[in-house]
Simulated assay, not measured.
Amino acid sequence: MKITKKMLILRKKINKINKSIIILLNKRNLISEKIIKEKININYPIKDTKREKKIFEKIINYSKKYNLKKKYLIKIFKIIIKNSRKIQKKIEKKKK
């Protein structure tokens, strides 16, 4: 099988998008670290069910707007939120 020039160009675009996603996830993690520090200051719980509900409502709306499968976006964001909680719990334990 031969890879075409067009396919190589498209793969480069995918690689660039993948890098952007990773950079954005890192930025999200850094913000999550700042959020837990604020939560600790005001004695706020790590898990915020109301906030998570709003996040998923927005995700469902985005899935419709951008014609993406809601099921997969929800799975992805559950993983992202779970990771944020782990980061926050780790920082919270260090503060105690």
Results as ranks from 00 to 15, higher is better:
91 I>F: 02
89 K>D: 00
70 K>V: 02
33 E>W: 04
44 Y>D: 14
47 K>S: 04
9 I>F: 11
1 M>Y: 07
9 I>L: 08
61 N>P: 03
6 K>Q: 05
15 N>W: 11
41 N>F: 08
43 N>R: 14
51 R>V: 13
85 R>A: 15
49 T>R: 14
48 D>A: 06
9 I>T: 15
3 I>C: 06
24 L>F: 14
88 Q>F: 00
24 L>V: 12
47 K>P: 04
32 S>Y: 07
62 Y>S: 04
78 K>W: 01
65 K>R: 09
52 E>K: 06
93 K>Q: 11
5 K>G: 06
43 N>K: 13
61 N>M: 14
28 R>P: 00
77 F>I: 03
66 Y>Q: 03
94 K>S: 01
64 K>E: 05
83 N>W: 00
23 I>V: 06
80 I>T: 03
1 M>I: 08
70 K>N: 00
74 I>M: 01
52 E>G: 02
44 Y>L: 15
27 K>F: 11
50 K>Q: 15
40 I>C: 01
72 Y>N: 00
62 Y>D: 03
45 P>I: 04
21 I>C: 11
27 K>V: 05
20 S>R: 13
35 I>T: 09
56 F>I: 06
62 Y>G: 01
22 I>M: 14
31 I>H: 06
22 I>W: 07
89 K>G: 05
85 R>C: 14
74 I>A: 04
62 Y>W: 08
61 N>V: 10
35 I>S: 10
63 S>P: 02
42 I>V: 14
43 N>D: 10
67 N>E: 08
19 K>Y: 09
44 Y>S: 15
18 N>E: 14
87 I>D: 01
3 I>P: 00
53 K>S: 13
10 L>W: 09
49 T>C: 09
8 L>I: 03
92 E>T: 08
7 M>S: 12
40 I>R: 04
53 K>R: 07
70 K>L: 01
42 I>T: 15
85 R>I: 14
39 K>C: 09
53 K>C: 11
90 K>G: 11
65 K>N: 06
23 I>E: 14
39 K>M: 06
68 L>K: 08
88 Q>T: 10
9 I>Q: 10
12 K>H: 14
85 R>F: 13
78 K>C: 08
80 I>Q: 03
30 L>R: 08
90 K>N: 09
12 K>G: 15
31 I>P: 02
44 Y>M: 15
39 K>H: 09
47 K>A: 00
4 T>I: 04
27 K>R: 09
59 I>C: 05
62 Y>T: 06
85 R>S: 15
13 K>H: 11
69 K>A: 01
64 K>A: 03
63 S>V: 02
76 I>R: 01
